[in-house]
């Protein structure tokens, strides 16, 4: 049997996958809603399905960042980009502030816990800021 590479069918396939994704998401939301109503929100969040839902939402959000367009016309010439180490320092600062908050704040965490929290926050901010940094860089390169 020959493999068909029909573009119309590939497109149709993608549309079908989209519908399946919608159905799946509705199902996941229904499960989570049911858990929330019967056992409470904390219980629902412990369900691994919640993780799957959040993960797919994050992946979708990140992928959509690539297809977004500028909503406003930039009349000023694009500002010169800050070097990458500034992004790292900014993320590090946010991580340290979070760490201090964990130690001094109402949680009264010990040092190891605070370090963990600070490291996670640092990693999250670094990843997001880096992504934006490289998006901007690409935009500047494209406009040249």
């Amino acid at each position: 049997m020959k493999i068909i590479k029909d573009e119309r069918l590939q497109l149709q396939n993608l549309k079908n996958i989209r519908i399946a994704f919608i159905v799946q998401t509705i199902g996941i939301l229904a499960i989570l809603l049911y858990e929330t109503l019967t056992a409470g929100f904390t219980q629902a969040r412990e369900n691994p399905v919640w993780l799957v839902f959040m993960l797919s939402a994050i992946v979708l959000g990140w992928l959509n960042l690539r297809i977004s367009v500028d909503t406003y016309e930039d009349t000023n010439p694009p500002k010169k980009q800050a070097p990458y180490y500034r992004v790292v320092i900014l993320s590090l600062g946010i991580g340290i502030v979070t760490m201090l908050l964990a130690i001094l704040g109402p949680d009264k965490s010990n040092f190891n816990e605070a370090l963990l929290v600070g490291a996670i926050v640092f990693a999250c901010f670094l990843a997001t800021f880096s992504f934006v940094h490289f998006l901007r860089k690409k935009q500047v390169e494209d406009s040249e």
Partner: peptide, 22 residues
């Protein structure tokens, strides 16, 4: 051209918008 007969039929009827490649 490596597609199905149905696709050709739809293109001829103007009901499918083929890619530039096709």
């Amino acid at each position: 051209v490596g597609v199905t007969r149905q696709t050709i039929s739809l293109i001829e009827k103007g009901k499918y918008n083929p890619t530039l490649k096709l």
